[in-house]
């Protein structure tokens, strides 16, 4: 029997420099903290991808198109979950909903990936909140990417 890996609780927040280099650096710092906290490779990949997509959305739609001056990133890790919130103060228009159709059309691909790789995701205006369940049981691990591939969540028809 494999033992449940120990996850150390951790909280972090930062005022992200609203540039391409700024979001890359913030993402790298957050992922490093999550790696130190003990997330496994699958969860790390999922959360890095989703965090990256949320920060890119904030930069493109919030800062560049919505006049935002600030991107706030906060995250929280405990034994069972990782929660990430990315928020900008821009005048964001109606965000795409991340549906299959929108993935094929173009806008909304990032939101679609966030939906696919997290357990729960909510977006409203310039705010994206995501939660990833950390489930050490591989049978019930709903976030395992290969399980999602098997379930055929694909968006290109």
């Amino acid at each position: 029997m494999t033992q449940t890996p120990s996850i150390q609780s951790w909280r972090g927040c930062e005022d992200v420099v609203p540039t391409e280099d700024g979001i890359a650096a913030a993402r790298a710092r957050a992922v490093e903290a999550m790696e130190r906290a003990g997330l496994d490779a699958d969860d790390l990949f999922a959360i890095e991808l989703c965090l990256h997509e949320a920060l890119v959305n904030a930069l493109v739609h919030g800062v560049r198109n919505g006049g935002a001056s600030q991107i706030l990133l906060s995250y929280e890790i405990d034994r069972r979950h990782v929660r990430v919130v990315v928020d900008d103060d821009g005048a964001n228009g109606e965000l795409p909903n991340g549906s299959r159709n929108e993935f094929q059309a173009g806008p909304g691909r990032g939101l679609w990936l966030m939906r696919a790789f997290t357990s729960r995701m909510h977006s409203e205006g310039g705010l994206v909140a995501m939660e990833l369940d950390l489930d050490s049981d591989p049978v019930s691990h709903s976030n395992h990417i290969s399980k999602k591939v098997e379930r055929g969540l694909g968006v290109v028809c």
């Binding site: 993935f103 990417i145 999602k148 591939v149 694909g154 290109v156 028809c157």
Partner: peptide, 15 residues
Amino acid sequence: GYVRQVIELANLPRV
């Protein structure tokens, strides 16, 4: 690895 999984998840190989 993960790159293949993302590509397959998105069904890109259909296109």
